[in-house]
Amino acid sequence: MAEILQILILGLALGGVIALMGSGLSLVFGVMRIVNLAHPALIIGGAYITYLAFKAFDIDPIAMLPVAAVTMAAVGVVLYRLLFQREARSAKYSEMTVLLTFALAMMVEGLLGSLFTNTQRVTSPDYATAAFFIGDVFIPKGQLYAGLVSLAIIAALSLFLKYSRLGYAIRATTQNREAAELLGVNVQFISVLAFAIGIGLAGAAGSLVSFVFSFFPAKHWEWIAMLMSVVVLGGMGSILGTVVGALILSVVAAFVGTWIGATWSTLTFFLALFIILLVRPQGLFGEKPEMA
């Protein structure tokens, strides 16, 4: 019983971080129909920003989170203007953007690789290796903090989307871009905004990832399928779905990892992705079957 509780807690804490990693991906797809394969590579970008600050000035990774988020959001604006703005009216838009973001992922990987080499990195604040104990169950502080911060950020994002005027506009654009435009929403601005928020979330996730996982530039290939499975399970474009998908899958993966073997825990995500795409492509909360 204690073992099950232990695995559950580890899975949930990790699930929180994965939810944050996936939320930006989901938002960007929802508003712009861009399947951003470069999202994990940009998360790694955020992780390096945090890592550098930690190594050079001993700045705490969580304290560095806003900086990483804002920096990556700015990167997002530039990327949007350079890569996606002109594609907005392309006929094969969705396929085109997948390939473009794939190219972008390679560029980011290559750039980070030439700057920082492919050595495994990790930031090591004190809490990264510490843990709370409740009876026999231990909760690693690093994962717990990262999970809680992630969920707090996602909660703030959800409130913003639900109650602010801009959030209202973002949701309307997600549902029907043309209609939103015709009703007075500046969809160009909303697109840039949503893209910037999405990439900013990648930056924020990067800060947390930096002490939860070890990372190197090529690591993002492992994450893309993992995040895709989370986002697709939840339903592309649905933030709530992403959170639920992340929690479910990472708990399942934690059980698989403990009981069957660590190798198979990663496989859980990929197999899940396969199965979801085939059985229910719109995901749990998705309302957009045209994705399929």
Binding site: Q175, A179, N186
Partner: peptide, 24 residues
């Protein structure tokens, strides 16, 4: 001008697809 700016001037357009939010 962008569609949203033109709308503010007072010209409203209903396209063939009617531009409704089906899930609202």
């Amino acid at each position: 001008l962008r569609p949203d700016q033109i709308l503010r001037k007072g010209i409203c357009f209903v396209p063939q697809e009617r531009a409704l939010f089906a899930k609202m």
